[in-house]
Design a protein around this nucleic acid. Structure first.
Lengths: 223, 223
DNA sequence: TTGTCAATGAATATCGATATTTTTTGATGC
DNA sequence: GCATCAAAAAATATCGATATTCATTGACAA
């Protein structure tokens, strides 16, 4: 008894379950930015012991989603406009680096992977399945960088991606994407990447981020 | 009873003590790269309970000094030449960014801080007090970046600095610094930074790293 | 009023024991 | 010999209880 299972039915530890759940709750804002995270409260919430909760929170520290205050427990990482803008700027710089490295090492296998992941994202988008689209969207962006042969850089980009997601949820109420054709932006990035045009791909990617940034800055300025 | 104390006599938690000790042991190679980290072994080694050890190891995951294998415990992060070269390259890119931002926002307070920290480093160097010099050296390099107003970038640079230190220890046996005048390299960086010459400061800094990289690559190529 | 301090309540951190999982060992059959 | 699989051993992961620390409250004195 007491064996945890993940989505695919594979067994998983209580710590990992807690990690995944807490991560989700922080990213989507179910646990608010800056909020104190009490062990007991989370323990009952997730129906598990204190040890897995503490360990999961310690792990979330890596992702900059949780802060650890010595002898004073944990809290969800605070959110504010300056932090958002820093994340946006770093993403542009680091993903530019990673994308250029990826393109410099381009091969047909990577290009095929890109096309595939892009197709899945489009399909999920047309079916209006938000959670699936979100996963596919991240997969697409990470696939663009995946060929850079630089695990640490990829790790940083992934972290920043998630931190950015969080602000999307924070600003969700005031956001209006209607004036944007996000699909076209993605197409442009994909085309340039497959074509091997690093400058074009990078500027399309950065443009994609800057636009998102502008959309989010207004609602976030109230933080 | 059972109150932990840190160097300054201030109280500290068992988890923090374990974190600091384990970090030190991994950075200096007392715990070898790739080595399995058994809880029981560390528990007796640090004379503390299993919970603080586990939590400390989870925290060290943030720093990429420890890997967590689900249901299979922890291990010290592996080390190899490719990893070292990635770290070196990323340091050059990220510290270049941070240094330029720092210089762009230069003010007299920051410049004074630089001069002060540089002085302390020189003094420690002339006194041949290795541990103090190491701390002062890190303080100098971080001070160069500290004015960038970009906490996440600083965090990344600090992580990469520590990861790099680890390779210095790994390669220590075969390293020979005699042909280098590291002090002069530092002076050059400081001068350019205080002068506000970003291009000069950045190239001096990168040169400093590249030289270190060359010195270390030979002994590390046996890994 | 304001500041200090002790007492109380709440939450964190840690321990020791146990359940669970992985790894090793060794017996068995091919 | 070599693969397979069950039992034993080792290590991890988790629980429940307790010790420790932090936060709050209210009395008392300046």
């Amino acid at each position: 008894m007491n064996v945890m299972q993940n989505a695919e039915g594979k067994e998983s530890s209580a710590t990992r379950s807690a990690y995944v759940s807490l991560r989700e709750m922080i990213l989507t804002g179910k646990l608010a930015a800056g909020e104190k995270l009490k062990i007991e409260q989370l323990r009952t919430m997730l129906d598990t012991g204190a040890s897995p909760v503490r360990e999961a929170l310690s792990l979330l520290t890596s992702d900059m989603l949780v802060e650890r205050l010595d002898q004073r427990g944990f809290r969800a990482a605070p959110a504010n406009l300056a932090n958002f803008q820093e994340i946006l700027g770093l993403r542009c710089a680091l993903e530019d680096m990673a994308l250029r490295k990826s393109i410099a090492r381009a091969n047909s296998e990577w290009e095929e992977q890109l096309v595939l992941v892009h197709h899945r994202m489009k399909r999920a988008g047309s079916q209006n399945d938000i959670p699936v689209f979100e996963a596919a969207h991240k997969a697409f962006h990470m696939a663009l960088l995946s060929n850079a042969d630089s695990p640490i850089l990829i790790r940083y980009c992934g972290q920043l991606y998630d931190l950015n997601i969080r602000y999307r949820y924070l600003a969700a109420a005031g956001t209006d994407y209607r004036k944007r054709d996000v699909g076209a932006e993605h197409d442009e990035i994909l085309d340039a990447a497959v074509r091997g045009d690093a400058d074009e791909a990078s500027s399309a990617l950065i443009n994609h981020y800057r636009l998102t940034g502008e959309y989010l800055t207004v609602p976030l300025s109230e933080l």
